[in-house]
Amino acid sequence: MTIEEIQNEIIDEFSMFEDWEERYQYMIDLGKDLPLIEEQYKTDSNIIKGCQSKVWVHAEMQDDKIEFTADSDAIITKGIIAILIRVFSNQHPKDIIDANMDFIDQIGLKEHLSPTRANGLVSMIKQLKMYAIAYQTQLK
């Protein structure tokens, strides 16, 4: 699936929720299911800065696609990363770099997008895109 197709799928899922509670409960459950990063990659250099909770991300190139794994010590944060990873993992670096992130707004998580918010969704997106840029330059 393309990034856009996955985003639409997520928007569809979230459209079924009536209120914030259902949305958050879903994210919490996503967080619990997030495939964990291997312990060896939970290093300080893999921590995303700007988050009140700790977030680790590891990226690996498989063929010409990037595979992301991640973890966090806070469950809601983990749910948010789970969504991002679902969108970005197994995609070409260029598609990740070009991806439009408006869907965050459409699934009712706009409040997490403020650059000053302590959980730093913005930092997470930036970091994932940075990995894509790094791999893209390697590919060239």
Partner: peptide, 13 residues
């Protein structure tokens, strides 16, 4: 066993 950030987020809601 629960991160304070998670509790704070729900309380804010």
């Amino acid at each position: 066993g629960i991160h304070p950030y998670d509790v704070g987020t729900i309380l804010d809601k």
